[in-house]
């Protein structure tokens, strides 16, 4: 029994690869700006979109995209203007989004929350050809943004105040990060499900940074881990009839535990190497600073 013999499995595996790339690619920026649970919030809001899709008999993927993008923009606005009461406003948004989804599905003639289940926890057999088209277009957008603007998004997520003084459009880039995260949620929801989307944005990044020292290496390793666990979970789900989303997330957590165990001796070795490098460093600092200074000084004076 070859899993590539089935059309629905070919679609599911393609969707899994796209999810494995896009979720960590935007997730790294959410982790960087210390908002790792933002994807979770967007996932809740997206449920209203799925419910609307059922009720209006239109594609739940596109509806969920529209509603979660709107929700993400609202979240950013709350972050700017909400100040101390922002957390309460976000809670209203998240739980309102979830409750709205459940209610809309119930209002749908012959709709039941069983239909909602496949969106909450992911389902391979329900990825339709139309879904694959939508997922591919949306994933393309996410990859374009996260690769094309990686330096700008890094600067803004790393230090917003500094980024403002470089003249970057900080608010627009923050909005773009939020919108991209929202799009990623809907890319992922067919395979991983809305409840577990956020895990695939955060866990591969957390796992990767057990080993890495640079942002670039973390980005590459996190997407490699993301693709590996998404493919692994999808395949396991085909052969063992286990839910794909849960399998993918448990695999990702397994990778995190494994890399954390591997990282401890690596960190010790690096610490020893760093300690050996520190001692001869202090003395020649001033000398080293002088020749390099001249070229910059020319630039400054111009």
């Amino acid at each position: 029994m070859n899993l590539l013999d089935y059309d629905f499995m070919r679609r599911a595996l393609l969707a899994a690869v796209l999810v494995g790339i896009t979720a960590p690619a935007i997730g790294i920026h959410l982790v960087q700006r210390r908002q790792p649970l933002m994807g979770d919030g967007i996932g809740h809001v997206a449920m209203t979109g799925v419910g609307l899709g059922f009720l209006l008999h239109s594609s739940p993927v596109w509806m969920a995209t529209a509603v979660s993008v709107l929700g993400a923009v609202l979240m950013e606005l709350i972050r700017w203007y909400g100040k101390a009461r922002g957390d309460i406003a976000l809670a209203m948004l998240f739980y309102g989004g979830m409750a709205g989804g459940v209610m809309l599905v119930n209002l749908t003639p012959n709709g039941s929350n069983a239909n909602l289940g496949s969106y909450l926890f992911g389902s391979l057999t329900t990825v339709s050809p139309a879904d694959i088209t939508a997922i591919s277009i949306l994933a393309g957008f996410v990859i374009l943004v996260t690769l094309g603007l990686r330096r700008q998004l890094f600067a803004v997520a790393h230090d917003e105040e500094f980024a403002r003084v470089t003249g970057l459009p900080v608010r627009a880039l923050n909005l773009l990060t939020a919108v991209t995260a929202a799009v990623t949620v809907t890319v992922s929801m067919r395979v991983v499900g809305l409840i577990l989307v956020s895990a695939l944005m955060v866990v591969p990044v957390a796992a990767a940074q057990q080993l890495t020292r640079s942002f670039r290496a973390t980005f590459v390793l996190a997407t490699v881990i993301g693709v590996a666990v998404a493919l692994g979970g999808t395949t396991a789900s085909f052969y063992q009839d286990v839910p794909p989303g849960a399998t993918i997330v448990l695999l990702a957590i397994g990778v995190f535990v494994l890399l954390t165990a591997l990282a401890a001796p690596l960190a010790r070795r690096r610490a020893r190497a760093a300690a050996a490098a520190v001692s001869p460093e202090a003395a020649p600092l001033a000398e080293r600073a002088i020749p390099a200074a001249r070229s910059t000084a020319d630039g400054v004076g111009a």
Partner: peptide, 13 residues
């Protein structure tokens, strides 16, 4: 930030 970054990456921004 929340993700490791090298000295050069930080300065490049």
């Amino acid at each position: 930030g929340g993700v490791p970054a090298t000295v050069a990456e930080t300065v490049a921004s």
